[in-house]
Design a protein around this nucleic acid. Sequence first.
DNA 1: AATCATGTCAACCGCGACATG
DNA 2: ACATGTCGCGGTTGACATGAT
Length: 260
Amino acid sequence: MVRAPCCEKIGLNKGPWTAEEDQILVSYIQQYGHGNWRALPKHAGLSRCGKSCRLRWINYLRPDIKRGNFTQEEEDSIIKLHEMLGNRWSAIAAKLPGRTDNEIKNVWHTHLKKRLHQNDAPKKRRPSGSKKKKSKPSNASSHPQSEAAPSQPILSQPSSSEVSSVTESGSNTTVDFSLESFPMIDESFWGDPMSSITSVESPNFYGNADMVQAQFPRDDDSVIGMGSDDNPGRSMDDEMDFWYDLYISAGGVEELPDFN
DNA sequence: AATCATGTCAACCGCGACATG
DNA sequence: ACATGTCGCGGTTGACATGAT
């Protein structure tokens, strides 16, 4: 196969995205969508390769991204799905709305794998709920994470308690989050996010998935329109459902919690 | 306080699959 | 049928944060 001639490295930015770049990308996609990733940066006026733009959008800027720590249910689901699917992160991500394959992959490699191997040994280091904030910009002066609010990422990352308090409503979860150690969820986080859509530093950015979805209609990028080797013509999602149903019917695992 | 070791995660890289001419 | 372009995926990297010594 022919290699993707991506990223002709002349004059294109690499490394962490700046707030300005994020805003340009978001604004462009909001207005025009992303028909052609390769052509997008040129049209949008970004000094990035299309691949980088796509990755940034998929993994970070997409409105339906669920930020914050993974819930116990999500982690359990990842483990179970990984048993079924192996390292098919995108397929696993398709079963966890709001989570990206990259994020799931990171979680797996950072602690789920160890958790399995070490029989869930207690972590020595980072206390649960404390999420590291990266602040290494290639051009530090313009990167928001290194500026006024170093502990505030470009896009708000609600703590696990914030996430769970929303995503687990209605489910009989037994997850025990010590809420006192986390700030209570701010109403403003889940409401009226689009009012601050132009301010990528706002903690409300992309808070309300429904509203955002209305303004950022997805072109269903979660569906992989190709069949597997065994099942050509069947979408990955269909195949996922097939194997999942089979697994459940065989008594493999209990039903996955509804994260919606 | 300084240094080291380790954890985390955004971003990059390379490849294969698919689409198109 | 073939060549080329684009997309999406999984593996890996690298810089920073943070706990341990």
